[in-house]
Amino acid sequence: MASELLKIEQLVKRYDEHTVINGLDLTVHSGEVVVVIGPSGCGKSTLLRCINGLEPIQGGSIKLSGDEIIHGSKNLPALRQKIGMVFQSYELFPHLSVIDNITLAPVKVQKRSKGEAEEEALRLLERVGLKDKAKQYPRQLSGGQKQRVAIVRALCMHPEVMLFDEVTAALDPEMVREVLDVMLNLAKQGRTMIIVTHEMQFAEAVADRVIFIDKGNIIEEGRPKEFFNSPKTERAKQFLNIFEFESVK
């Protein structure tokens, strides 16, 4: 078994009186692809935000290779370099070109040379089919292209784990594929990834392990084939049934 990379124990996250995550445990191993699914508002996006220290937590601990992630702590920026995060709304920096979006953090945070960072950025862009867009600005790109750039931007920091927060939810259907293909390729390369998604077929194809969350805790987890074909809990069965339609004719 590969080594433990991320260890979450008894995580509690509350917004005022509303408990979003309630004593959740999760361990992710190196090279593992974990897909998190569940109804909206179940806490799956919040979980990713906590892992990246974007939210203060009210209980439990999150550790990356033994280092605890604490919102607002001094060493958080250093820890975050090991965690790549891609958001639903891409959030490229609109005043920077594609290449500068990608190389800003490697150059300013990791103090790598501009030449070397750009070389790697171009190599990664080529792999996602966007090398010719390097000099363009985010507003000149389609949603799918922006999201691929956002993935490259995260990759260029050499993160140990990648977090994907519903990265295709804001895309037109015909652009979903190009982004999912990039993620499938990353999975094949053996990257550690935690993916929150509503794309069930993609989840089944990419996941090593599927985690079903509802009401702030893990209800069921398992290998994708077993989970999608024969879910054990009633709640998961109900949830998966939402995605099947009876023919009306």
């Binding site: 974007l54 920026p77 370099q81 965690i83 958001f87 959030e91 920096f93 300013k108 945070v109 995260a154």
Partner: peptide, 16 residues
């Protein structure tokens, strides 16, 4: 707000 967050997520400090 997401501009602050995606910048933080890349490991930039507040001042950066």
């Amino acid at each position: 707000k997401h501009q602050y967050e995606s910048s933080a997520a890349l490991g930039l400090k507040n001042s950066q």
